[in-house]
Each structure stands twice: as structure tokens, then as C-alpha cells.
Amino acid sequence: MTIHAESGTYPETYYVGAYWGPRRESPEACAQRASAFLNMLAECDPLLENWNKIPKPRGKGRKTPLMPPDLPTLTEAFRHGVNREPGGPPFEHLGLTVSAYNDGTRQDFVAVDMTCGGYAQSNSNVCVLSLPSKGENAERLLTAAMLTAVTRSMALAWEPDWAVAMSDAYREMDGRQGKDDPWLGWVTYLPSHRGTVPPLPAPVRIEPVEDRGSLIILTPERFTVTNPEHIALARRVRALLARAGLMRSAAS
């Protein structure tokens, strides 16, 4: 679906994603990370308290509750989430994938896709949480405080190379270059090994994530592509982060 946020055809949609490079991990290790993440999500908001595994292939099989997280169930889910051709051998180097959905209505539907343990140089491991775009729950979830909490949860559970909460519309405008270059979103997590976050202009806020890295929150109000001040601020911040060696400058 093409988003025309500037014309109001569709509401601007948002998601939170964590991304990291090759890291070989067992189904048990992936399950432990997923368990920690789902437990932290449940503390963020009631809409994120209940999850059911999406069958593979999608739409087939019985409903499998994942909350409260049960390590044997999650481990088996990741073990069965290996990529393979029908009837063929598993491609373990591509990672183990588990997808889940909440118990909300269609308007309040939330999904999470977790791919962990991949060690192919050409592929990334990823955790992506999609969020509702309208309604009472969306108004509650799409706040700086809530997305900061969710991004923090991803950073702690998955230890990614970077993480971001942003709109799909702004993702197309960010100027990111290459799969190893972070997107800059409404909320961005950068681990300490990337470097030190420099002072940034108001109203940007920087929060530590224990001793692991920093969260950069661009605006206290909802960041949207329809606000030219938000776009100008994001471009200025990206330029400052690029100067500090934390990401690349926007493509010209």
C-alpha cells in the first residue's frame, strides 16, 4: 500500500525494528532472547501482553499461545522456523524465524516477526513490531514515551547493531545508504561500540540504555512527515551523527 500521508489518504503507519548482522545462535538462545523481549513488551502496554504464534505456512495449523513465555515452546518454534525448500534440507545459515500476533481486533492488530541466529553474510537478523495506525490503542502506543520503551526492550533483548521506531513514510525519505547504515527515526538506538552520541539540538533527547548504548528521541510529540520542522530537524540530526561517525550522511 502506498502511503500518501501528506494528503491524508491513509494515516501514517509506524513500526519498531531492530537489526543486527551475522550472529550464529541456537534455537534455545533465540528462545531466551524472544522470551525476554515478549516479557518486556508486556510491561509496556496491555495490547502487547498476549501473543500467539503465526503457523508456518501462515494460516494453517492451530493457535499456539506464547504468553507467558514458555522456553520449550519457544525453542521448538524457532527450531521449526528454519528456512528450507519443501522437502529439502534446512538453511540454518539464513536464521530461525518466529512470527506472532496479538489478541486484538482487526483495528488493534499487532504483529511481531523475529529472525535470530542467522550467520550468512548477505542476510540480517531482525525483529520488527508493526503497530496499529488509528484508534484509541494507536493513540496510546504512538507516543514518544511508549516507542522509547519498546525500542529499549528490543535493544536489551536482542543486542542489535541498531534499532529504530519510525513511520514507513519517513523511511522512504531518510537518506539511508546501505544495509549497514542505520535509519534515523523518531526514536533511534545506537550501541556504544558505534561511538559516542554528540550533543544534539533541542528538542532532541538522549537516554542511556544501561551501559550498552543510547536512545535518541527526536521530538516529544508524534514525528510525522507532514511537519516540515520535523523533517528539517531529522536531517540536521543525521548530519551531526554522520559527522560523529555514527551513520552516513544522507544521499544527495
Rank of each mutant, 00 (worst) to 15 (best):
H93P: 04
Q177R: 13
E28P: 12
M166I: 14
A155N: 01
R235E: 06
P86Q: 01
G81M: 02
A5S: 08
L41K: 02
N137S: 13
R152Q: 03
A18S: 14
T224S: 11
A155L: 01
T75D: 02
G117D: 03
P201C: 13
P22G: 09
T97A: 09
A120G: 14
V150G: 01
L66S: 07
E6C: 06
Q32I: 07
V237H: 06
T224Y: 00
R236D: 12
L129Q: 04
F37H: 15
N123T: 06
H193K: 14
R205Q: 11
L74A: 03
T115M: 07
A163F: 10
N125V: 06
E172T: 12
P72E: 03
R79E: 11
I216D: 07
S252F: 06
A144T: 10
R243W: 09
E76C: 02
L200V: 10
N50I: 11
R152M: 08
A138V: 00
N83R: 09
R24K: 15
L47E: 13
G195V: 06
G104Q: 07
P46K: 07
M166F: 14
R24I: 05
E207F: 13
E172R: 15
T148K: 09
T9R: 13
N52E: 13
Y15C: 07
L141E: 02
G195W: 05
C30L: 09
A18H: 09
L38R: 00
W183Y: 15
F223T: 08
Y101T: 06
K134Y: 01
V209N: 05
R236G: 11
W183E: 13
R58P: 11
R176C: 11
P72C: 08
M166T: 14
L94P: 11
R62G: 10
E172Q: 15
T105H: 02
T188M: 08
L48D: 05
A29C: 02
R84D: 03
W20V: 00
R212Y: 01
I54E: 09
R176A: 15
A34S: 07
S7T: 08
A138Q: 00
S35D: 12
S99N: 12
R212C: 04
D70V: 14
R24P: 04
L240C: 10
M166D: 13
R222V: 13
E28K: 10
A145I: 05
F37W: 15
A234S: 10
S130F: 06
S153K: 01
G175N: 12
E28C: 00
K134M: 10
G245M: 10
V82P: 01
G135E: 09
L47G: 10
K134P: 00
P208G: 04
V126C: 14
R194Q: 09
S192R: 02
L233G: 03
G8S: 04
A29R: 08
N137T: 00
T143W: 04
G8V: 00
G245Q: 06
T73Y: 15
P55C: 00
Y119I: 08
S252C: 03
A202F: 10
T115Y: 04
T148P: 03
P191I: 02
E221V: 11
T219Q: 05
Q177A: 14
A111T: 13
G8F: 00
I231K: 04
S167C: 05
L131V: 01
G185W: 05
V209R: 08
R23A: 09
M247N: 12
R62D: 14
D211F: 01
